[in-house]
């Protein structure tokens, strides 16, 4: 597949709204879709202007009267609400060893923004939930281009640190899943205790009849362990620094990692939500296509 955006551009670009739109429109080339903006859409409400709203939506007459910016919101029929849950624990800060400027989080942000653009073009509603133990960042569900821009702005501000939130912190999150929705869970699924954390979160959503579609983001070196010589390993979520000889560890590591991966894959397969794994070195659109192909729901 033709690579529209190379990883270095991806790493260097900060304007997620533009980047994701560019990638998504590239994916949508030739795809028929209905025009959802403009005529035929019933007026629903005015709301205050927020950063990310298009200037075109500002009601200038109302501005002339009130000296305030109001945005006309239209009532759109929507088929689906997709809640995108992003793991912002410290392990997502892992950079690629091939493109050191590109980190898992940056890749995930671009991937999510692109998915949101696709959802917007489909007329679906989407929301964002970024989780780590320092706090929960949320963009409530919405739709349209401005919502996409809002999500992109929120994504741009996200930073990865800490761990995946524990049970008590997660308790505040469940309320957002009361309405029927689909969940896209973006994480590296590196759990301190296997079956805990993200897996348990997905299992609980699944039990609540909220399908949770997982995207695992890795860096290539985690799959291949190409190192030689003496290494000083800094685990972003663990404590301490480990020193070891790469050559002696390689076989053992690859075996353990592959076993963990297959167990993870088996858990999601059991819930009919196959795990899509992507490395940050893979082009976003390619990874997105693989994800969409695996679930057959979008695009």
């Amino acid at each position: 597949m033709q690579q529209l955006i190379d990883p270095l551009t991806l790493a260097a670009t900060r304007d997620l709204a533009w980047l994701s739109r560019h990638i998504a429109e590239g994916m949508l080339l030739g795809v028929q879709h209905s025009q959802r903006r403009g005529a035929g859409v019933e007026f629903q409400q005015y709301r205050s202007y927020e950063p990310g709203d298009s200037i075109r939506n500002i009601d200038w007459k109302l501005y002339a009267r009130s000296d305030r910016y109001y945005v006309r919101e239209a009532d759109q029929e929507s088929q689906m609400h997709v809640c995108i849950v992003l793991d912002t624990s410290a392990s997502m800060q892992q950079p690629s060893f091939t493109y050191p400027a590109l980190r898992k989080l940056q890749y995930a942000k671009c991937w999510i923004a692109t998915l949101c653009w696709l959802l917007y073009r489909q007329g679906d509603r989407f929301s964002l939930l970024a989780l780590n133990d320092a706090g929960i960042r949320r963009v409530p569900e919405g739709q349209g281009e401005s919502h996409h821009r809002r999500i992109a702005l929120e994504l741009e501000q996200l930073e990865a640190h800490g761990h995946w939130p524990d049970e008590s912190r997660l308790a505040a999150v469940w309320q957002y899943f009361e309405q029927p929705c689909q969940v896209v869970l973006v994480s590296d699924f590196f759990e301190q205790h296997e079956g805990a954390a993200q897996s348990a979160f997905a299992a609980r959503l699944h039990a609540a009849n909220r399908p949770c579609l997982p995207l695992q983001i890795l860096v290539e070196a985690e799959e291949t362990f190409p190192f030689t010589g003496e290494l000083k390993i800094l685990d972003p979520e663990g404590s301490g620094i480990r020193e070891l000889g790469a050559r002696q560890q390689r076989q053992e590591y690859l075996r353990a990692f592959a076993a963990a991966q297959s167990r993870l894959r088996a858990r999601f397969a059991a819930r009919e939500c196959p795990l899509t794994t992507s490395t940050v070195e893979t082009p976003v659109e390619q990874s997105l296509r693989a994800f969409i192909g695996a679930h057959g729901r979008i695009g």
Binding site: D188, L231, E237, I241, Q248, Q249, F257
Partner: peptide
């Protein structure tokens, strides 16, 4: 030794450290 950040460190076994 080379210092690297490696998020998948949990699968590297401590017992294999060979000082």
């Amino acid at each position: 030794p080379r210092e690297i950040t490696f998020a998948a460190a949990q699968w590297l076994l401590a017992k294999h450290q060979r000082r």
